[in-house]
Design a binder for these strands. Structure first.
Lengths: 308, 308
DNA sequence: GTTATGCATAAATCTTCCTTATGCATAAGG
DNA sequence: CCTTATGCATAAGGAAGATTTATGCATAAC
């Protein structure tokens, strides 16, 4: 079919020179010297096998073929510029954050407004996702994922360590005369007995090999739901205290036992593809979220360990 | 207005990869390795600040923004390819030869058909031009110019040395009982007394400071016209024997005196801009014309001295 | 005539792009 | 289920090519 294009730097130089009808101006537009433009155009002419410009004393003009070529080439470059302009612009003003549901509901929902006030030029779209989804397929600019490490090669910040402990409504605790030990928990319904966190927590609390009916794990993606059911008194949930802060402070939930469990490397992560490292909106969002968490004193120690 | 474009090799790699949905295939289309494509696209993504492809295990797919961008970029490149394809193709099959009138009428007219038979794929357009025109403004692929050196920097071949001597019709010579000496010429009308060649020839013939009425010089551009007037018996012309060969052989003209004059560097030149050096049609035409002149034994000694 | 402008050219440098070599993950095939 | 093949990522080294600097030249402007 069509042959390969000649050298692209040469085409670019030609485009600018044809448009401006001056090698000097073309050079300055392209951020290079007049000599470089002259050289590139000479190369292109030799490649094509015919001259593109007439060299007059103090001005150049296009040859017939140069004119013919320039019309289309200038159009094509205009289209390219427009394409990149569009995609860059749209990109600068819209930040798409994919976030696992728990974090979106318990954290972003209440604080995002502060980021938006501080950065009125950036519009935000939150894409919540459950535990099954994978960040790399969400077409988002940054992603907040739960528990597991972010995709290979992505820049990531560990945000909040995934600690967990049973939580329940004070009313439910009262039904058994208060919860005073880990054993007491077992006398109550568990909201998601299949959640592996239960086993780990009971283990740490000294109750080995606790027998829990083996329902499918739903994990942190649904922690928000779990919390609501706990508040409603449907049972004890295994939850992360930081994300129940509000309910704890208002007496909707209590944390009966002072034992926190965790799993190495399980945490909430903020992550983004390396390509987004230099993106303004991404940097702003990243820095904002890290600062907020630091203020709360919950920022994971390894937060700063990311590919920068 | 619009910002500068990102690196063009990167855009090219993206275009091919987006079209073929494969870095490997893109690399092979562009004549480079898969690694190079991967690298270029990574650069582009970092420059833009967002990813263009999702990297799946064994296939890639475009992100939303990648898709959006690729549609326009592919179009723009298609336009570029078409532009170059058109201008190259048109160019390969049409050879525009600008030639000064003398050479066009006396030489090309009769022999060009041989070139065309030998190269049926090349169409020829002859643009004759008078002494006032300058080859560099004729939009021709090659130029045949008379007398003066070709434009600076152009590749050139000296074809035929500009030798000259008086010529006239046998009938006109008879009117004064035959022309036997240079002085006899002065007894006849001169077709273009202003032509400086006359002075030079008379000088060489031993007649210094000949007095010729000072009419404007018309020079070789009109040698064809001059020859015709000489054949018609209107006077003696100062002409180049090689270009009157036919008339001499048929007795339409005679060269009465055996003195040939010339001026250093005055000759017919074939020339073309350096850009055309590698053009097939230009090389074919150049080689053909040099061969033909060599067969005739009139090829100037310095013919091979050109910028190659 | 003098100056200033704009393009051409050559040499040297330096950037950038590309290749080679390798690793890694996954899909395919036995 | 294990092996093989495919496709992309990455790092280091190298080669090609682009760019700058310095200069020349021609002509238009003053």
């Amino acid at each position: 079919m069509h042959n390969a294009l000649p050298s692209l730097p040469a085409i670019r130089a030609f485009e600018a020179a044809a448009r401006l009808l001056s090698f000097t101006k073309a050079g300055s537009e392209l951020g290079m010297t007049q000599a470089a433009v002259s050289y590139q155009i000479k190369l292109l002419e030799e490649k094509l096998g015919f001259p593109l410009f007439h060299r007059n004393a103090r001005r150049i003009e296009l040859t017939d073929k140069g004119k013919q070529l320039s019309l289309k080439v200038i159009d094509a470059f205009e289209a390219l510029r427009e394409a990149f302009y569009d995609v860059r612009n749209e990109n600068d003003t819209l930040l798409v954050v994919s976030s696992n549901t728990t974090f979106a509901l318990n954290w972003l929902a209440t604080r995002l407004v502060h980021f938006q006030l501080a950065n009125p030029d950036i519009a935000i779209r939150i894409v919540p996702y459950g535990p099954a989804a994978r960040p790399e397929f969400l077409n988002s600019d940054v992603s907040i994922s739960a528990c597991y490490a972010p995709p290979k090669g992505w820049c990531h910040h560990r945000l909040v360590d995934a600690t967990f402990t049973p939580m329940l409504s004070p009313e439910l605790a009262e039904t058994i005369g208060g919860v005073h030990s880990a054993e007491d928990i077992l006398r109550l319904p568990l909201i998601d007995p299949g959640d592996p966190w239960w086993k780990i927590w009971f283990d740490k609390a000294g109750i080995k090999d606790v027998d829990l009916s083996n329902r499918p794990a739903t994990r942190m993606g649904s922690q928000a739901l779990e919390a609501n059911r706990a508040i409603a008194g449907q049972g004890a949930g295994i939850l992360t205290p930081y994300f129940c802060k509000h309910a704890l402070e208002n007496g909707l939930l209590v944390q009966p036992i002072d034992i926190l469990a965790s799993i190495d490397d399980e945490a909430w992560y903020l992550s983004y593809p390396p390509a987004n490292k230099k993106s303004r909106k991404v940097r702003l969002f990243r820095d904002w979220i890290l600062t907020e968490l630091q203020k709360d004193g919950v920022l994971a120690e390894q937060a700063q360990k990311y590919n920068a």
